[in-house]
């Protein structure tokens, strides 16, 4: 991990020193800043806030919003909420898995795409929905997945 990133971690920790019950909020901030939570960040928090690494690791591994592995350049979220499921969301996920050659939650070896499942984005009128880097693609059909992914390079 580069020093620049550790500096950022330090900066985030500075904002929380002296407060109670901040661990989840702190880790969320690091996640959104670095897009993942490196081991060194966990160690730094432990060192500075005098909290055992095991306790921090337990939180970081429990919550879905936190990733302990680096994520790809583009994050693909396939919605598998109930409304998208009944409209064929699983077929979209299957197609994405075939195309990328990875499973749910994994990143392609070239670090280009991370494929994730989300259990409802609450824009059910557009289902089945795929979100890539925050951009919504509504009423996706299995035959459209390839073209959609190709537009992210």
């Amino acid at each position: 991990m580069v020093t620049v990133e550790l500096d950022k971690v330090d900066e985030i920790i500075d904002g929380y020193v002296g407060e109670e019950g901040i661990l989840i909020q702190l880790l969320l901030d690091i996640q959104s800043e670095l897009n993942w939570i490196p081991k060194e960040a966990l160690e730094r928090i432990s060192e500075r806030l005098k909290i055992p690494v095991s306790q921090i690791y337990r939180i970081a591994s429990f919550y879905k919003a936190m990733s302990l592995t680096p994520r790809g350049k583009h994050i693909i979220n396939v919605c598998l909420g109930t409304a998208c499921h009944v409209r064929g969301g699983q077929r979209i996920m299957d197609r994405a898995k075939e195309l990328l050659g990875i499973k749910e939650g994994e990143t392609t070896p070239d670090m280009k795409f991370t494929l994730e499942r989300v259990n409802c984005l609450g824009c059910c009128a557009l289902g089945p929905v795929v979100v890539v880097d925050g951009e919504y693609h509504g009423k996706v059909a299995p035959a459209k997945v390839e073209k959609t992914l190709k537009s992210y390079d």
């Binding site: 109670e20 019950g21 969320l28 429990f62 879905k64 919003a65 936190m66």
Partner: peptide, 21 residues
């Protein structure tokens, strides 16, 4: 931080304390 079970009242309160929900 993304955990369905944390919507359960006692779990949610544990999460507010900064612990695993």
């Amino acid at each position: 931080a993304g955990a369905f079970v944390s919507g359960e009242s006692s779990a949610l309160m544990t999460a507010i304390e900064g612990k695993v929900g």
